[in-house]
Amino acid sequence: MSVYELFGRLGIRDLGARRISTGASVPVLALLVAGAVFLAVGSLMSSTFAELTVSGVAQGSVFASLALALVLIYRATEVVNFAQGEMAMGTTYIAYQFTVWGLSYWAAFFATLAIAFVAGVAVQQLVIRPVQRKSVLAVVIVTIGLLSLIDGVVLWIWGGDPKFMPAPFGNSVYHVGGVTMSLTDLGTIAVSIATVVVLWLFFQFTKLGLAMRASALRPAAARLVGVRVNWMLALGWGFAAALGAVSGLLTEPNQFVLSPTMMQPILIYAFAAAVLGGLESPVGAVISGIALGVFLNLLGQYGGYLKDSALRLPVAFAVLLLVLLVKPSGLFGRAAVRKV
């Protein structure tokens, strides 16, 4: 595989393909490299900085998996699933219930992923598909209804009090050259990276993954080659729900407790990351999610006036608004053709 092909496959299309440019441009790549260098230099100079960077990456990889879930659905149906966070929260409660019944953490983890997948497919088939042709507004309102519904059901079954789950990675801590890293953070990073890689392999190299991409890009053309587009969209919802479950399950060890509101801020950060990445670009969503996690974590320490934790969400909102105004196509998105 040549370097060009590699870039092409990663979605960095300016370097990969000759005529169509859909990915990150050279300035954006330069910005990313500069950011990475900044983090590396900072980490070498201060161990606190290094620790914040690592935990920021861990935080960010949670945002990234939820952002990726949003992007999967957006690419397939041009709609944002506002219930994505609550779906993730609900499935995390299911995992909690499994551990209460005596399953080990990881057995509960994988069982939950399967349940989330089925639930995602069911949601798409039962409530999204019937309104999909009507309007974006109709789908948005249905997902908001789902948000409220899931919230209510979780409150009903499990109540509003925080719940505690076993820690998946234990409480041990590593010291590498004066830098302290918790195993929870490292485990969070590892699991989310593994999830993203597995998904990427699936979409890139399997027939089903290819058919799903084709359905998202050109449904009419996909139908003509025999792809069952409606089922592919439903599978997309299934994968998104499973990814959301991963982000929910990874949020829990970071917050130490389970509560019905736990995914609401994460959803906003994930929205910000998805928009920053261009809303259509999976690579963009992952990189932006991680970058946002690190940025907010560092801001909490070195932000001066902005380091108040009450300002984390408003800062994320400001980032989102800024991106939408300056570069609505995001860092990795296709430039939208504005017709007016």
Partner: peptide
Amino acid sequence: SIPVGGQDIAAGLVVVLVML
């Protein structure tokens, strides 16, 4: 009969059903 969350469930159900 739902002690907590009934309001959210009612709202969610009504919205989804109305849209459908």
